[in-house]
Design a protein around this nucleic acid. Structure first.
Lengths: 193, 193
DNA sequence: TCAAATCTGTTGACTAAGCAACACTGGAGA
DNA sequence: TCTCCAGTGTTGCTTAGTCAACAGATTTGA
């Protein structure tokens, strides 16, 4: 039932890949049309031209679909920047903040009126990924300090920055915004550099 | 095994529609890249991301696929102009000639170097459709004459014209070309008007 | 000229997707 | 209040698609 999208989608049965792609694509289109609360499982399966029972063979409900969809998109963003296989450096941190800002920015552009519930579901999912990534980075450091607190602080800070950025009426240049914010996040992580 | 593409594709199992669409789309893309002789069933199934055995559940071989593909495209062209549900008039005949010219014209633009075998397979398929259509038209006339000879002559004339048109180095305006040719075809059919 | 490689068409066992039906829930409205 | 309606999950059975393996045909090239 798709606990996480990390498991290689490559070795899967082609039918499964096809079905998931149909579901995800349809879901993306629907999200651009109306907000998450008003999208039913029926809507998704109708657009995807698959049977409703098939949907439930892949996802527990539409919330699981949202989690999976957000996770998958976010991870692609991370992998594109090869941030999944590296360690902590100020520059990698900068890339990460950039990625989160861009991701949330795109989300806001491509989705119809975002609603509270929708945003908080996304927030939880993304923060989980950021935290996992930071923990991984910090654990590779020679200094063997506890990573939990610093990773938590940085995670919330990064998400907060990105959320703030994506909600701004007049968004400033992304690079400028990130460069200004970076020191406030990196200050707690430098010990792992 | 798909004797003709006429049977309503609507009521089919969604999986079947999906698979056929995947095959047809991939075939179309491949035809734009290389000529028919050099396209293997493997190429098609690889691009379509379906199993080779599945292909053979739908088509006998790649020649059957070509027949089906050409027939389907041509019939869509005919239905678009609502020529499938009408009778003989000079104006409908004109539309038909236009349709065949456009169809072959597009075919030549969108396919890589057409080869002999490829063209003759298409020719047979298209002529079959033209003949069927004309026979249907003429049979609706009040005059109960044999339609076979006139329909045959007109079929070959129409295909010949369209083939000629599509092979021309500098194609003249289509409307002009058709208007000039029309009388030479209609002369044998007027008795059914 | 022989061998390796590639494509073909087919099979049988397995798995995913389709479908119709079900009981259940939570509104919306007369 | 009751009923109607639309959506939710779930089930048992059917059908389509996958896969690995096979024998045979053709081509390639050493």
């Amino acid at each position: 039932m798709l606990p996480n999208p990390k498991q290689m989608d490559e070795n899967l049965d082609p039918r499964v890949k096809r079905t998931r792609k149909l579901i995800l694509d349809s879901f993306g289109i629907l999200l651009a049309e109306k907000n998450f609360e008003n999208i039913s499982v029926q809507d998704v399966t109708d657009k995807a031209q698959i049977n409703r029972a098939t949907f439930y063979a892949h996802f527990q409900d539409k919330y699981a679909l949202l989690d999976y969809s957000v996770s998958k998109m976010f991870m692609q963003e991370i992998e594109k920047r090869t941030l999944n296989a590296c360690h902590y450096t100020p520059d990698n941190l900068r890339s990460l903040i950039l990625a989160v800002c861009e991701f949330l920015g795109n989300m806001h552009s491509s989705c119809a009126q975002p609603h509270e519930q929708f945003e908080s579901l996304i927030e939880n999912q993304i923060k989980k990924h950021i935290f996992g990534l930071l923990s991984h980075w910090l654990s590779q450091s020679k200094v063997k300090l506890s990573t939990e607190i610093p990773a938590t602080v940085a995670t919330w800070a990064i998400y907060g920055l990105a959320s703030h950025y994506s909600h701004m009426k007049k968004r400033p240049a992304l690079e400028k915004f990130v460069d200004e914010a970076l020191p406030l996040v990196s200050v707690n992580l430098e010990q792992f550099a």
